[in-house]
């Protein structure tokens, strides 16, 4: 991160250094440098096709970096398989096809855990954030409403006690009240559980509410970064930033 970042004594959870990635030979993201510390919510704003999802897929190991390095908990993780990273505490919430529609809510949740023995304690944790999820445990996930499906996604990620959550446009197509709910949960998770969150969004309001730092992604490059200070009208500033 750039020099104007406030030095903090918190441990770095994720760091990308000069990261480039894409599909086959086509570079989609280029020279990305970000650093996320414990309990930090880092927002990445950008319009469609700017490489937001590609960045998350690369960190999660679905795409191999073309260049640069990714460090997670001070270990290089570039080139590791997604299942390995998931086991090491990275929870990935993809934008599309993110739940198993034909499995029950409970089965979806079990799949997020390394062992079924953790299910009861995980359920308790989930109930605290989303009381509706345990009530629907026997229901097929495909029968949930759009908002409930997003809650299930969050719940599944939270159950595994992740150190880092990668969240891809979770607010897309949701009612404002639901966006509000999810915003609050994200904030609490970062504050209470010390989980770091890398949040990729088009929704400026959501990012303003929860993120500590924001980067703007344009055509695969980070063109601007800023710290969100309390009190300032961050939403307006960010909206202006995105317009440019």
């Amino acid at each position: 991160m750039s020099e104007n970042t406030k030095k903090s004594d918190k441990a770095t959870v994720l760091e990308c250094r000069q990261l480039s990635s894409g599909y086959d030979d086509a570079t989609v993201i280029d020279n990305i440098n970000i650093q996320i510390t414990e309990g930090q919510v880092f927002g990445i704003l950008g319009k469609n096709g700017m490489g937001k999802s590609t960045l998350l897929k690369t960190i999660m190991g679905f795409l191999k970096p073309i260049n640069g390095e990714i460090y997670y908990a001070d270990q290089p993780i570039g080139g590791l398989e997604p299942q390995v990273l998931a086991r090491r505490g990275i929870a990935y919430i993809p934008q599309e096809a993110a739940i198993f529609q034909d499995l029950t809510v409970e089965e979806n949740l079990r799949l997020g855990l390394p062992s079924d023995r953790l299910l009861p304690s995980g359920m308790e944790k989930v109930a605290a954030y989303f009381p509706i999820i345990p009530q629907r445990r026997k229901q097929f996930a495909g029968t949930l409403s759009g908002g409930e499906q997003k809650m299930l996604l969050m719940a599944r990620a939270l159950m595994s006690d992740p150190k880092l959550m990668l969240v891809d446009e979770i607010s897309e197509g949701l009612q404002p009240t639901m966006v509000e709910n999810i915003t609050q949960v994200l904030g609490q998770v970062a504050a209470k559980e010390n989980t770091s969150v890398l949040l990729v969004e088009q929704n400026v309001r959501l990012v303003t509410r929860v993120a500590h730092s924001v980067a703007l992604l344009e055509i695969g490059r980070i063109v601007q970064e800023m710290q969100l200070d309390d009190g300032a009208d961050n939403e307006l500033a960010l909206t202006e930033m995105m317009r440019v």
């Binding site: 299942q83 993809p94 096809a97 198993f100 499995l103 079990r110 799949l111 062992s115």
Partner: peptide, 21 residues
């Protein structure tokens, strides 16, 4: 559990891998 994981892989393999399977 392995059966559940198998069904998950049948339905959506990338998603299953992302969950640590």
């Amino acid at each position: 559990r392995i059966g559940l994981q198998t069904r998950a892989v049948i339905m959506n393999e990338p998603l299953a891998r992302g969950l640590g399977i």
